Amino acid sequence: TEEYEYTDEQQAREAAREWREKGYTVTIEEHNGRWRVKTG
């Protein structure tokens, strides 16, 4: 599992979409105004 943090929701969603296209399972969670994208 890798985790990436973004301050911008749009960036987080874009990144998540790219990971999904590569076949990863992706979770996005908002935490204190930051967006965490977890792949695994």
Rank of each mutant, 00 (worst) to 15 (best):
T1N: 12
T1A: 12
T1G: 13
T1E: 13
T1C: 12
T1R: 11
E2V: 14
E2Y: 14
E2G: 14
E2W: 15
E2I: 14
E2M: 15
E2D: 12
E2A: 14
E2L: 14
E3D: 10
E3L: 12
E3T: 14
E3R: 07
E3I: 15
E3M: 14
E3V: 15
E3P: 07
E3F: 15
E3K: 06
Y4M: 09
Y4R: 08
Y4I: 08
Y4Q: 07
Y4W: 13
Y4H: 09
Y4L: 08
Y4V: 08
Y4T: 07
Y4C: 11
E5N: 07
E5L: 11
E5V: 11
E5R: 05
E5W: 15
E5K: 04
E5A: 06
E5H: 08
E5T: 10
E5I: 13
Y6H: 03
Y6P: 01
Y6R: 01
Y6V: 02
Y6G: 02
Y6L: 02
Y6D: 01
Y6Q: 01
Y6I: 02
T7G: 11
T7P: 13
T7D: 15
T7M: 13
T7N: 13
T7I: 11
T7V: 12
D8C: 07
D8V: 05
D8A: 04
D8L: 05
D8G: 04
D8P: 01
D8F: 05
D8E: 07
D8S: 13
D8M: 05
D8Y: 06
D8I: 05
E9G: 04
E9A: 07
E9Y: 13
E9M: 07
E9N: 03
E9R: 05
E9L: 13
Q10T: 11
Q10S: 11
Q10D: 12
Q10F: 12
Q10I: 11
Q10R: 12
Q10M: 12
Q10L: 12
Q11P: 03
Q11F: 06
Q11W: 05
Q11N: 07
Q11A: 14
Q11E: 14
A12T: 02
A12M: 03
A12P: 00
A12F: 01
A12C: 05
A12I: 01
A12Q: 00
A12R: 00
A12V: 03
A12K: 00
A12L: 02
R13E: 10
R13N: 09
R13M: 13
R13A: 08
R13Y: 11
R13V: 10
R13T: 07
E14P: 00
E14S: 10
E14W: 05
E14C: 10
E14H: 08
E14Y: 05
E14T: 10
E14I: 10
A15V: 09
A15M: 08
A15H: 07
A15D: 03
A15P: 00
A15E: 04
A15Q: 07
A15Y: 04
A15W: 04
A15I: 08
A15R: 07
A16T: 03
A16K: 02
A16W: 05
A16I: 04
A16F: 07
A16G: 05
A16Y: 07
A16E: 04
A16S: 04
A16V: 07
A16H: 03
A16R: 02
A16D: 01
R17F: 06
R17P: 00
R17Y: 06
R17S: 08
R17I: 07
R17T: 07
R17L: 08
R17E: 10
R17K: 11
R17N: 10
E18R: 14
E18L: 14
E18Y: 15
E18H: 14
E18F: 15
E18P: 03
E18D: 09
W19Q: 03
W19N: 02
W19V: 02
W19M: 08
W19R: 03
W19P: 01
W19L: 14
W19Y: 08
W19S: 02
W19A: 05
R20F: 09
R20D: 04
R20Y: 08
R20H: 08
R20E: 13
R20N: 06
R20T: 10
R20G: 06
R20P: 00
R20V: 11
R20K: 09
R20I: 13
E21L: 10
E21N: 10
E21W: 04
E21V: 06
E21D: 12
E21I: 07
E21G: 06
E21H: 06
E21T: 07
K22Y: 04
K22H: 05
K22W: 05
K22D: 03
K22L: 10
K22E: 04
K22V: 03
K22S: 05
K22C: 06
K22R: 11
K22T: 03
K22I: 04
G23R: 02
G23A: 02
G23D: 02
G23I: 01
G23P: 00
G23V: 01
G23W: 02
G23K: 02
G23F: 02
G23E: 02
G23H: 03
Y24I: 06
Y24G: 03
Y24T: 03
Y24P: 00
Y24M: 06
Y24H: 05
Y24W: 08
Y24V: 06
T25V: 12
T25Y: 13
T25S: 11
T25G: 05
T25K: 10
T25H: 13
T25D: 10
T25W: 13
T25I: 13
V26N: 01
V26P: 03
V26F: 02
V26H: 01
V26Y: 03
V26Q: 00
V26K: 01
V26S: 03
V26A: 08
V26T: 05
T27W: 11
T27C: 09
T27A: 07
T27S: 10
T27R: 06
T27H: 09
T27M: 08
T27D: 06
T27K: 07
T27Q: 09
I28Y: 03
I28F: 04
I28E: 02
I28N: 01
I28A: 02
I28V: 12
I28P: 01
I28Q: 01
E29H: 08
E29V: 11
E29N: 06
E29L: 09
E29A: 07
E29I: 12
E29R: 07
E29Q: 08
E29T: 13
E30V: 10
E30G: 06
E30D: 06
E30A: 08
E30Q: 11
E30M: 12
E30N: 09
E30P: 07
E30T: 07
E30S: 08
H31Q: 09
H31D: 10
H31G: 05
H31T: 09
H31Y: 12
H31V: 14
H31A: 09
H31F: 13
H31E: 10
N32H: 07
N32A: 06
N32V: 03
N32P: 02
N32W: 04
N32S: 06
N32G: 09
N32K: 07
N32C: 08
G33S: 04
G33N: 05
G33Y: 02
G33M: 03
G33E: 03
G33D: 04
G33K: 04
G33A: 03
R34K: 14
R34F: 13
R34S: 08
R34E: 04
R34H: 08
R34D: 02
R34W: 06
R34I: 14
W35A: 00
W35P: 00
W35G: 00
W35Q: 00
W35K: 00
W35F: 06
R36H: 11
R36L: 15
R36G: 03
R36V: 15
R36P: 00
R36W: 14
R36D: 02
R36E: 03
R36M: 13
V37Q: 00
V37M: 04
V37I: 11
V37F: 03
V37K: 00
V37S: 00
V37L: 09
V37N: 01
V37R: 00
V37G: 00
V37T: 02
K38E: 05
K38W: 08
K38D: 04
K38M: 09
K38T: 14
K38Y: 10
K38G: 04
K38A: 07
K38Q: 08
K38N: 08
K38R: 13
T39G: 05
T39E: 04
T39I: 15
T39S: 06
T39Y: 12
T39Q: 06
T39W: 15
T39V: 15
T39M: 14
T39P: 09
T39F: 15
G40R: 15
G40L: 15
G40H: 15
G40Y: 15
G40E: 14
G40T: 15
